[in-house]
Simulated scan of single mutants.
Amino acid sequence: MCISKDAKVAVIMGSDSDLSVMKSCIKVLKDFEIDCQVMVCSAHRTPDKAAQFAKNAEADGFDVIIAAAGKAAHLPGVLAAYTPLPVIGVPVKSSTLDGLDSLLSIVQMPAGIPVATVAVDGAENAALLAIQILSVAYHELRHKMIDYKKSLQEKVEKKNAELQKKLLEIVQ
């Protein structure tokens, strides 16, 4: 059985301005005790660096790459073109088209170069998807994910119980 300390995720942002979106991703990975490396790398401004990183990612011990980008949002696709690792794209909302441009740029990949895509600014789900992918090899992560989903269920049940109390107060 593998241990989660061996699991490693790269969180790559096209710009440092994406950090405000990606904080929740980084936090979830840390909460699940996943080793993650965070860096800025642009598909357009540092294309050689992006290609080099992706080509070496597997040898450098990464299991999954999460790539966030806005506007043209080519970073996830460029990374995916150079690596056999799973790449999860996070479309970042831009001021121009509210992230629709980013979403379409990431989700519309040509055959043979898949990029898993989450919602616009869906950084938390990107981390959770990475953990689910990792849980195939790192089995203790599967148990942590089961516990996490159970905690979500408990939160909803608690909110429902509170709502029911409020409804009773209205009726009385």
Results as ranks from 00 to 15, higher is better:
K150R: 10
A68C: 00
I3H: 14
A80D: 05
L85E: 07
A59E: 14
A126E: 02
E154C: 00
H139N: 15
C2H: 15
P114F: 05
M1F: 08
M109C: 01
G77R: 04
G99A: 06
K93E: 15
A7N: 10
A123T: 05
D147R: 14
A7R: 07
Q172N: 15
T46G: 03
I146Y: 08
D31T: 09
Q153H: 09
L134C: 01
D121C: 04
A72F: 03
A10C: 03
K71C: 14
L103Y: 12
C2L: 15
G61D: 00
K149E: 11
A130L: 03
V90H: 10
K149C: 11
N160G: 14
L163R: 13
D16C: 15
G112Y: 02
E157H: 09
L79A: 04
G99M: 07
G61P: 01
A119Q: 12
H143T: 15
K165Q: 11
S4N: 10
A59L: 09
V118M: 02
Q132C: 07
S15W: 00
V120M: 09
T83Q: 04
K150C: 05
K27G: 12
V92P: 02
L128F: 05
L97P: 12
V28N: 12
G61F: 00
D6C: 08
N56C: 11
A67P: 02
M145H: 07
A81L: 04
M109K: 04
T117Q: 03
V92W: 01
S15D: 00
V64S: 06
G89I: 00
L168I: 12
M22F: 10
M39P: 01
Y82D: 10
E140Q: 06
K71T: 14
P84Q: 10
A50N: 05
S94W: 14
S105D: 03
T83P: 01
A137N: 15
M22C: 13
A116S: 06
Y82Q: 14
S151G: 12
L167C: 05
V78G: 01
A69F: 00
S102E: 05
V120E: 06
M1A: 14
F62W: 08
I170G: 04
D16G: 15
E154S: 08
Q108A: 04
I113F: 01
A116E: 00
G89E: 03
A54V: 00
L85F: 06
S94Q: 15
Q164P: 07
F53R: 03
L19Y: 12
V136H: 15
V11I: 13
M13D: 03
G70I: 01
A73L: 03
E162M: 09
S4G: 05
M39A: 06
I34Q: 01
K149Y: 15
S42A: 07
L103E: 08
A50T: 09
C36E: 05
F53I: 03
M22T: 11
K71H: 11
L103N: 01
Q153K: 13
V92F: 02
V40H: 13
F53M: 03
A69W: 00
D121I: 01
E157T: 13
I170N: 07
V107S: 07
K165W: 06
D48E: 14
D48G: 11
V21G: 02
V92T: 04
L85G: 06
E169D: 11
A50I: 06
E162I: 12
Q132A: 12
Q52H: 13
I66S: 04
R45G: 10
A111L: 13
